[in-house]
């Protein structure tokens, strides 16, 4: 029992994921700054932001709307992210094997943060938050099918294995899945999916700074907003880790941990570069991008997989 709690709360759970995610968030901001020829924030900046929001700032509750749901939503987001991270990282670090079908559980837990943002923003009763929530819903409907197809393709490639442990083992026995044509296509689709899941440009229309003034997060202040930031830090760490587990070989023995870090950094670097070189899409464009083009890409990958490419 105690060991489960330790896993959930310390390593590889909440504390470790928050620290790693915070550092990745700094990496993201620093790269953004370098792309724009700026100097960028200091190393511990994400932690300053988090502790300022948590310890210093006041919480303002909406006058109308459901306060209980408003406050519950950020906690739910952190819980979903941490739980999903736990199921991803335990097999990835070879600590525990996971169970049959855990990949489906991970898939659903990864949607929990987005859903709780929607619930929380609708509970605040702010019209701009409602517009943001409706955009987030449309975005989820668009990218979720693509993400599911990517997972399905990976399951197919691994020979009908439904748990992360055997998927990683199948790659380590043979070649990493990204080493084939279909694997590259799947990687591209998965990259855009996590871009949308993280809510980064070009898929940041739910929080659109310019026209919605932070959209779904507009009413959050103080500790609840700190929880939302925490969920975002954790997602920034576990989503690349999930791709590494699905397509890029996981962690091998020996110098594997170094390679693992490099792979995660490379994925975050790609995500950051995409977000710095693209403008925000309209929600209709994002829908057709995922529903038509990305789905087509993944279906091609699945067909190629069937032919063993």
């Amino acid at each position: 029992m105690a060991v489960y709690l330790f896993w959930f709360l310390v390593f590889p759970g909440l504390l470790f994921m928050a620290a790693a995610g915070g550092l990745l968030s700094w990496f993201d901001r620093k790269i953004t700054a370098r792309v724009q020829f700026r100097k960028g924030p200091p190393l511990l900046q994400p932690f300053y932001d988090f502790f300022k929001l948590l310890l210093v700032k006041e919480t303002i509750l909406p006058a109308q709307g459901s306060r209980f749901v408003f406050l519950l939503a950020p906690l739910l987001a952190v819980f979903g992210a941490a739980m999903a991270g736990l199921f991803i990282l335990l097999p990835l670090f070879n600590i525990e094997t996971g169970f049959r079908g855990d990949i489906i559980v991970i898939f659903y837990l990864l949607t929990l943060p987005s859903f709780s943002y929607i619930i929380g923003s609708l509970a605040s009763g702010n019209p701009l938050a409602a517009v943001g929530a409706s955009r987030e819903m449309k975005l989820i409907i668009s990218y979720e099918l693509t993400f599911l197809l990517v997972v399905a393709a990976v399951i197919m490639k691994s020979g009908q294995k439904f748990d992360l442990e055997s998927i990683i083992a199948a790659q380590q026995a043979g070649t990493p899945f990204i080493g084939s044509i279909s694997g590259v296509l799947l990687f591209i689709a998965a990259l855009f999916c996590i871009q949308a899941k993280l809510g980064l440009v070009p898929f940041d229309m739910p929080e659109a700074e310019a026209e919605l003034a932070s959209g779904i997060y507009i009413e959050y202040s103080g500790p609840p907003y700190a929880m939302i930031r925490l969920a975002k830090y954790i997602m920034l760490f576990i989503l690349p880790a999930f791709i590494v587990a699905l397509l890029m070989n996981g962690m091998t023995d020996g110098t594997g941990i170094l390679w693992l870090i490099l792979k995660i950094l490379a994925i975050v670097l790609l995500v950051t570069l995409i977000r710095n070189t693209n403008p925000r899409l309209k929600i209709r464009q994002a829908s057709s991008f995922f529903l038509i083009w990305m789905n087509l890409l993944v279906v091609i990958a699945i067909v190629l997989t069937a032919f063993g490419l």
Partner: peptide
């Protein structure tokens, strides 16, 4: 941003 200063969209 090197001092940690960001421009935010919401007064909250």
């Amino acid at each position: 941003e090197r001092f940690g200063i960001l421009l935010v969209g919401s007064i909250r």
